[in-house]
Design a protein around this nucleic acid. Structure first.
Lengths: 320, 320
DNA sequence: GGGACCTATAGATGTTCACCTATGGAAAGC
DNA sequence: GCTTTCCATAGGTGAACATCTATAGGTCCC
């Protein structure tokens, strides 16, 4: 038996004929003419090399080989029905896997979206990669993920971007810092304190440095710590001040205050980024749609900046 | 996804490519050129409507849809490998089912062949139908069985026959019948006793009556019993005499004797009969071969009359 | 930056497929 | 016994398949 001569169509026909016990009836059901069905059966018989049907008391019954072929065909056709269902779920974004790469700071917010999303689409698996901007840029260059979250998109030539969340950077100080009571603490004086900075490669650091440059100011003493958490705890312990994303502060933060410095907060926005040259996984698309529709329910209103529809519009053009 | 555009060939190619992670390598293994494989993949992708492969770190990796298709393909191709094995077993007569119809009297012998056959071919299922000649003839006319065992084939126009066993019909009397001691009991005198006869439609009865006719004798008193067993017990109980197949007598039969009547035994032979117009099941063919080769080991030498090879020769002509 | 790989596309060809209509013979139904 | 129903075969057709060669555009490696 040469499998190359078998086609799914032949199997479908065989199944229908066995089921109906009649060539003509099967032909009607399949919207074919009777000779067509007869001929398919003939080809199938020749491909298998065994008689597959025999007439018994006026009904076409499968031979032993025919019965086994019927079983095999049903399994096989059923398997491909399942596959079609799988594809449907994949296309509908109800199933599948995507990965998303976050800059460190965004890890304080994104779970608020991912949690409800996972409840709505329990069969979608998400992998989250976290690192600083530089690390995430490398992932972007290597096309390692489906979605990225940056403050500033890498190059818009290769990427589509859509802002979704405000990310204000504020000056954070210990609760008992004198500037909270005494007036006259201008920025220059504050910078006389030790400034806690993230490592180079961090987006927060990059924005901080650019802002200082724009203000025409140089930093005084600094200390570098490779994590927002460490910096937060450092501030509370009187190690110094820092310019941090508001999202980094816990809802209750009795040890910390934000200082109202002119020119601050530095206004930045996180954006969802997708590569232009890579077809986005259906499930990632589903996630973006979910974010577009449910962002307001997931994060505080003052941070919301829902421009995801623009990104989706861009993506749907790519799709088509 | 339209299943009609899928072919087993495409699935084979996809499987090979996924397995090798390379189009060129798959092409070499499949003895195809690389462009051919590329093109098949393209068709497959179009049939499925989803990308199936993507390049990751220099290797072709399946996408989610591609991986699921790979799984489905392997299952499906495996299922048809199994089917091919099944066909092989069927063709080799190692598996399958056939039915054989016996005239009553043959039921005393056939199990001796069927037992060893079943041990040698445990996966072949045999159905045995038993009845008198007339009933078996009806089964033959309706083509209900693969093989038949008769003394005389129905019509050789529709049947192929091969003798395999002597079936001598002898006069059976109770152990203490006077004819065993006194001389002078000729046939006519014996027929004065009650003759126990099988029902009309029985082959034994038919042969008995024909033989009596040839001898120019009429029966005296008779009694009709529709089973060899009943007749045997009847004789032992002094109900009368009978002409019975030797096979009906148990190996030890202290209550019965066979009387040496001139002209007896009636020589008849059982034959395996197959229909000319019906392809014989491979397993039935296997049984006939088995019988041809092992008959001598299964029944007493004095009954053997192995002409099955002739029948098989006839069948193999029909095959070809 | 040139070779040595790879993969994709274009274009060609003989074969097979999946249908059809027309028709004849066999079986079943009244 | 006649009609209907059924199946098989013959013959035809356009589409698709499976395969090739030739070629061009990418990576990766030295």
């Amino acid at each position: 038996m040469n499998i190359r001569h078998l086609t799914f169509r032949l199997l479908q026909v065989h199944v229908e004929v066995v089921r109906r016990g009649s060539v003509s009836e099967a032909a009607r059901r399949l919207h074919l003419t009777q000779p067509t069905v007869s001929q398919q059966l003939k080809r199938l018989r020749e491909a298998v090399g065994e008689p597959l049907l025999e007439t018994r008391q006026g009904r076409l019954e499968p031979t032993e080989a025919g019965l086994e072929l019927y079983r095999a065909s049903r399994e096989v056709l059923g398997r491909f029905d399942d596959f079609a269902d799988y594809l449907d779920a994949l296309r509908g974004g109800r199933r599948g896997h995507f990965s998303i790469a976050l800059v460190n700071t965004a890890q304080y917010v994104l779970p608020r979206l991912l949690g409800p999303f996972n409840r709505a689409y329990p069969e979608v698996e998400v992998t989250v990669h976290i690192g600083n901007r530089q690390q995430m840029l490398r992932r972007f260059d290597r096309q390692e993920d489906d979605l990225y979250v940056f403050s500033h998109p890498p190059s818009l030539e290769h990427a589509l971007a859509g802002r979704f969340l405000r990310n204000p950077l504020v000056m954070v100080a210990p609760r008992d810092h004198p500037a909270t009571r005494e007036p006259g603490w201008d920025l220059e004086r504050l910078l006389g304190e030790r400034l806690l900075l993230r490592e180079p490669g961090s987006a927060t650091r990059m924005m901080t440095e650019r802002w200082l440059l724009e203000q025409g100011l140089a930093t005084g003493p600094t200390m570098q710590m490779a994590s927002n958490e460490a910096i937060r705890v450092g501030i509370a312990s009187g190690l110094g001040l820092a310019i941090l994303s508001e999202h980094v502060l816990p809802p209750e933060h009795p040890d910390l205050v934000t200082l109202p410095v002119p020119g601050l907060p530095i206004e930045s926005h996180w954006q969802f980024i997708a590569r232009r040259d890579q077809r986005l996984a259906h499930s990632a698309l589903g996630f973006l749609r979910f974010a577009r529709d449910h962002l307001e329910e997931c994060v505080e209103a003052r941070f919301v900046c829902n421009e995801i529809f623009g990104l989706l519009a861009g993506l749907e053009v790519v799709e088509a």
